[in-house]
Every structure is written in structure tokens, then in C-alpha cells.
Design a protein around this nucleic acid. Structure first.
Length: 558
DNA sequence: TCTGACACCTA
DNA sequence: CTAGGTGTCAG
């Protein structure tokens, strides 16, 4: 109850207020929005807009509840939706300009976790990042008025632990902490041509960070899911605490499903065992929570901001990893149905992440290609893809840091999941930051389209191909552009320093660390700042990427 | 730890 | 009605 509606309501309100506030209010750093606005570059009109775009996390209150307890997201072979779903309220867009909205989920740090003693603890180093995949909102590309008209929902996004996932779902490793990010890419005509710059912004809401699991570890989280997710209604007691209980106890039979009852009982016994005494069964969240959560939550939360930061990252991961995998379809393939399939692409290892910041503004990279091909898919469903290889778009980014929630433009840097990591990643790895590449002309369009299902689809295939990248594709791609996502890395620290995004190829070379770019280097951790958003513009022509870290305006280049 | 089947529920 | 999203449990 609370959750949904409330959230909705709240959100709206929140959104705005939050946006600003949010950042602040929230524990995080906020720096928020403010930053955003300012920067933008004067130069391009469009660009300006991007910077002015504000994004508010919908149902932030609900997200916070989960965050405090240490959000967990189930990942399955078939793909599982995130529960608090990722929905945002967007304002500040140019009503007539077209934008592509997409999300990616990058590692929040490079640790592997275990849930012991009701707490999440670091249990080693993270596995190599997977190919980052992007989930393009099904409505993309669409005008600013479309996006601002209502909440933008990414609820259909699915998470999987199947590294060979054929559906385009976002691939994650279990027991690792991740941070979802939202990217807004301009798909305007103007941008289309190479010369133009395509701008994009990244928004990060730290309260959406989560640890991926194959089964819930923290009972509190389970309870929050049951109580707030409509599809888990069957596991609710009644709302009233008693009722639930009563049901459990009393009614097993007819009324309530046996299973439920059992489950509850069982669970209570088993899991809770002693603890339950209280009322866990009922579904009351509270009960457990006290125990469990306390710590965990804290833990988690801390992590966010800090974690990321703190995490030191360790080291690099293997550079070698590239994942490009080609995906085979799994058996499941059949599932694929429609939409899904196509959309995603992966990025192989690629990832480079570098970002170029403005300082180094445009870098041009050679292009890589984007692998995306257009397929035809139908409409727009969301698509996911990974960046494959190469791509690098050229874009410049600026980073600003915004506050907590999201925002701003310079993002990549801001987020970085693994600070160093990224870097490393860059090297070999997989993670990719989101890079957008755009081909020139088509760029935008392409961008869009690529995302689009059809395109995506193609893209997807590319995966297979991808492994390596194809030039050809690239060429084609070139026409379209696509963003790639790399997640990772980029970010944070890098942000500060610009990393270069590079192409994978390049990237591959790149040194892991920082370098790059940009002018500014920032220490990795800087990101403590953690700006939530960042914006970039891409320039495309070649696929250059640029990311500007600094917020500053970006001028893109031009 | 993870997977698949299951009942229950939403849409 | 069907299709599909839930957590749970057995394995």
C-alpha cells in the first residue's frame, strides 16, 4: 500500500522537490542538480537542454526503505525484474527535441559479498565484469514532451545471471553490488549529423544500488518485497498484521493457499526460527527487521556513497576478460520472444571506458563500430545491449556532479563503480561505460534506432559477432550511432579524470588507470562526490568520445 | 549456491 | 481468459 501509491504520489512531489532537495536532503552528496544546470554549454542549444534536464527518482521513499535494509535484487537465468522498479520523472527537456533514455547497471565496487550474521560483508574480489548491457527504454526515441508527460518506467528491465543470456537482459554476477544509471541521449536531428554533438547526461540515484542474489539473504528485504510488490501479494499476510497471522495460523486450508501458509510457517520456522517469534510470519516487516537489518542496512547504505568510494578498488580485474561473448542462445532461447530478443547487445569486453572529458574533448577515436544493426524489430520495446565493442562515440561529457540522486551531466565520472576498476576495466575488460557513440549523421537517429528494438536486435546479434567487433558493422553502425554502455568504469574517478572512453579497442590499450584524459584527473575517489548526473555531449563524428568531466560546460566541442 | 516447479496473484 | 511476475521449497 504504502509503497506504490504513495510512492507515486510522493514521487511526483518529490520529484521536483527531491530533485533539488533530494540531493541534498539525502544523505548523499548532493550537489545536485544545481550543478547540472549551470553547466551547460552555451553553445549548442540542444546541449543546453540536456544539462537542464532534471530527473527525479520515482518512489524514492520506497527505494530508501530498501536501501536502508540493503537492497537485494534477484537474478535468474530467465531474467527477473527489479522490484522497486526504476521509474523516473523527467523535466527540463526541450519538448520538441527527441531523446533516447536508457539505463545500464554498473558495478558499485569491485567486491564480492556474502551475507553473514545478518550483514553483508565483503567476501573477496569481484568477478570480472560482465559485458555491460544497456536497456533502452522502449519509447526511445521520443520527444521531450513525451518523456515529461508521464513517468518513465524501466520496469520491464530484467536482470540475469546467465552470461550467455540471449534475451538481452542485463547480466550481473550474484553477490555483487551494482548501481543502476540512467542516460539521456539527445537524438535530435541536429545531432544527427556527425558534426553535431550529441549530448547525453547520466543520472545516478544511489538509493537504487543493490546487491544481486539468487535468493534473498536478508529477511527484511523479503518482507519489503512481499509487502510492496503487487505480484507477491500472495505472500502477504493481510495487511493487518494480525490477519496475516491469523491466516497463517488459522486458515491454512481453504482460504489461504496452503502453500502460502506453509511457506510462511516454514519460513518462519526455518529462517526465523527463533526470531520470528515475533511476527514475522505475519509478514510484518518489522519483526525481522530489527534484527536483521540494522546492520545490513547501514552497511549498505554506507556503501553507497562511500562504498563506492571507499571501495578501493582493487585492482584490476583481468584485463583480459573480454567477454564478448557470443551468445549462444540458451535453451531458453525460445523464450525469447519478442521484444526481448533483439534488443540487446553486449559489449564485449570492450569497454573502454574512458571518458574523455572535455578537457580532452573530443577524442576521436577511430570508430569502432557499433555493431548494432538494425533489425527490425518492432516497435519499441526496450532494448538492451551492450556496447560492444567498439564504439566509441565521441562525445564529450561533462561532468558535473550532482548530488545524490541523480543528475547531472557529467556523470560517468561520477558514478564510477569501480573507480579504479574502471580503469582497469578499461583495459581489458569488459565493463563498459556507457559510451555513446554516434555516428554522425545517423547518429542520433541511429542512436535511437539502434536502441530500438529492431536495431537492437541486430545489435544483439552482433553480440555474437561482436566478440570482436566488426568493422562492417561498424560502418553501418556508424550510421546509426549507438551508445554503448560501458558501465563501469568510467566513472568515478575517472570521471574526474577523464577517461577516455575509448573505444574498446583503444581502450583496451589504455591503461587502466587514469589517465586519460582529460584534463582533469581526479582521484578516483573523488567521486565521492558522486555526482549523480553527468551530461555529455557527443560529438560524433567520429566516434569520439568525450566526456567531460567537469561539468563545465560543455562545450562540446565545438 | 543455484535451479526449476509451484501456487498465487496482477495485468 | 491468457500471459507473466512473485517468493518459496525441494533438490
Amino acid at each position: 500500500m504504502l509503497q506504490e501509491k504513495a510512492s507515486a504520489v510522493i514521487d511526483d512531489h518529490v520529484t521536483r522537490s527531491q530533485a533539488r532537495e533530494g540531493t541534498q536532503s539525502v544523505p548523499n552528496p548532493s550537489h545536485l542538480a544545481v550543478a547540472v544546470t549551470s553547466n551547460i554549454p552555451s553553445g549548442n542549444e540542444a546541449d543546453q537542454n540536456i544539462e537542464n534536464i532534471k530527473v527525479v527518482l520515482h518512489e524514492r521513499e520506497l527505494w530508501k526503505k530498501f536501501h536502508e535494509a540493503g537492497t537485494e535484487m534477484i537474478i535468474t537465468k530467465a531474467g527477473r525484474r527489479m522490484f522497486p522498479s526504476y521509474k523516473v520523472k523527467v523535466t527540463g527537456m526541450n519538448p520538441k527535441t527527441k531523446y533516447i533514455l536508457l539505463t545500464d547497471i554498473v558495478p558499485a565496487d569491485d567486491h564480492r559479498y556474502k551475507f553473514c550474521d545478518n550483514k553483508w560483508m565483503v567476501a573477496g574480489k569481484a568477478e570480472p565484469a560482465m559485458p555491460g548491457r544497456l536497456y533502452v527504454h522502449p519509447d526511445s526515441p521520443a520527444t521531450g514532451s513525451h518523456w515529461m508527460r508521464q513517468l518513465v518506467s524501466f520496469q520491464k528491465l530484467k536482470l540475469t545471471n546467465n552470461h550467455l543470456d540471449p534475451f538481452g537482459h542485463i547480466i550481473l554476477n550474484s553477490m555483487h553490488k551494482y548501481q543502476p544509471r540512467l542516460h539521456i541521449v539527445k537524438a535530435d536531428e541536429n545531432n544527427a549529423f556527425g558534426s553535431k554533438n550529441t549530448a547525453y547526461c547520466t543520472h545516478v540515484f544511489h538509493e537504487t544500488a543493490f546487491i544481486s542474489v539468487t535468493s534473498y539473504q536478508n529477511h527484511k528485504i523479503t518482507q519489503l518485497k512481499i509487502e510492496n510488490n503487487p505480484f507477491a501479494k500472495g505472500f502477504r499476510g493481510s495487511e493487518e498484521g494480525d490477519l496475516r497471522v491469523s491466516r497463517l495460523q488459522g486458515k491454512d486450508y481453504p482460504v489461504i493457499s496452503k502453500n502460502m501458509v506453509r511457506q510462511r510457517l516454514i519460513s518462519s520456522h526455518g529462517h526465523l526460527a527463533g526470531k520470528l517469534g515475533t511476527g514475522v510470519l505475519t509478514g510484518q516487516p518489522q519483526v525481522l527487521s530489527s534484527y536483521q537489518y540494522t546492520d545490513p542496512g547501514a552497511h549498505f547504505s554506507n556503501s553507497d556513497p562511500q562504498d563506492l568510494l571507499s571501495s578501493s578498488f582493487p585492482q584490476s580485474r583481468d584485463p583480459g576478460l573480454l567477454y564478448h561473448r557470443f551468445k549462444h542462445r540458451a535453451d531458453n532461447a525460445r523464450h525469447l520472444e519478442l521484444g526481448c530478443k533483439r534488443p540487446y547487445l553486449e559489449t564485449p569486453a570492450a569497454v573502454s571506458e574512458e571518458h574523455y572529458f572535455r578537457s580532452a574533448p573530443s577524442y576521436e577515436s577511430p570508430l569502432l563500430s557499433h555493431p548494432y544493426c538494425p533489425d527490425a524489430m518492432s516497435s519499441r520495446e526496450a532494448c538492451m545491449y551492450g556496447g560492444t565493442e567498439a564504439e566509441a562515440g565521441s562525445g564529450t561529457v561533462e561532468v558535473e556532479e550532482l548530488s545524490s540522486p541523480s543528475l547531472n551531466c557529467n556523470m560517468w565520472a561520477s558514478m564510477q563503480p569501480y573507480p579504479r576498476y574502471s580503469v582497469q576495466t578499461v583495459e581489458g575488460v569488459a565493463y563498459q561505460p556507457f559510451a555513446a557513440h554516434f555516428a554522425n549523421a545517423a547518429t542520433v537517429a541511429s542512436v535511437v534506432s539502434p536502441h530500438c528494438p529492431a536495431a537492437v536486435a541486430m545489435a544483439a546479434r552482433p553480440q555474437a559477432d561482436l566478440g570482436v567487433y566488426n568493422p562492417a558493422a561498424a560502418a553501418a553502425a556508424a550510421q546509426r550511432a549507438l551508445p554503448v554502455a560501458h558501465s563501469s568504469s568510467s566513472t568515478s574517478s575517472s570521471s574526474s579524470s577523464p577517461t577516455v572512453p575509448g573505444l574498446r579497442e583503444r581502450s583496451s590499450h589504455q591503461s587502466p588507470y587514469p589517465r586519460k584524459s582529460g584534463s582533469p584527473l581526479r582521484p578516483p575517489r573523488d567521486f565521492s562526490v558522486y555526482p549523480p548526473q553527468s551530461c555529455m555531449s557527443i560529438r560524433d563524428a567520429s566516434y569520439q568520445y568525450q566526456m567531460g568531466l567537469s561539468s563545465t560546460g560543455t562545450h562540446w566541442g565545438d
